[in-house]
Amino acid sequence: MNTGEKPTLAKGLMLLPALIVLGLFFTSVIMLFSNAFVDRGGFSLKYFEQILARPDYHVVFYRTVITSIIVALLAVLLAYPIALLLWRSEKHRNMLLIVVLVPWLVSLVVRTYGWIILLGPKGFVNAFLGWVGVIDTPLKLMFNDTGIIIGLTHVLIPFAVISILASLLSIEENLEEASRVLGAGRWQTFKTIVFPLSLPGVFTSLMVIYLACVGAIVTPLLLGGITEKFVGSQIYQEVMATFNMSKAAAWSICLLSLSFVSLVILKFIERRALRGQE
């Protein structure tokens, strides 16, 4: 809708509120860095050394990354059939989409709370298994990695569904028809046409879910407890329990660098996977 007019300074003021919001965001990032790198008025790596010197902290990073990779793959795997279902059911798509959107947009705390009720020692899953007679003592489904993986995966599947569905919907119908007319079977059509063309959605999901996982606080804290620490729950404790802002900031910067490196690797894989398309 560019009408080719030159902007005036007065009109440029329309940009100001957005610039203020963005300015606040970037200032907060700068504050994060100054909190982490400055100690008693001078540059210092003290807080990073404190983190890197602790082997138990390495475990926290390791657990966060591994769990996040598992969750991202699992969520995409479980989301794909749902996305296919929605793609295929044009008539009821809106209704089915609401079934996906509601769990996505309902507060994280509420969904995690549901899992606490389900997975707890006296929870539904254990009560049911005990009643059927499969187990004598309750399974430990919570306060360990299993709980975190189940909770995070469930929380993030809806996003993957939406993003994969968006990719599927952008596939031209005649491509598929052409493939079928030329004699390709159902599976071959899926393998050579549908799946490769849905890859952008798959990679977007992997990236967003991975980021959401490494930066998660609520779900790991509530389902993982205080023993199975995540980077997020560690950060939360530094701020809320030990009031060590500088160390929390140092953790946050480690988390940022970690996600940045992971994103670069994922982008590299994506480029290789999508080579030959377009």
């Binding site: 504050m31 959401a212 998660a216 606080i217 980077v231 953790w251 940022l256």
Partner: peptide
């Protein structure tokens, strides 16, 4: 592209 935990601290 900012993990939420880092955003909270920032």
């Amino acid at each position: 592209f900012f993990p939420h935990a880092s955003m909270g601290v920032a």
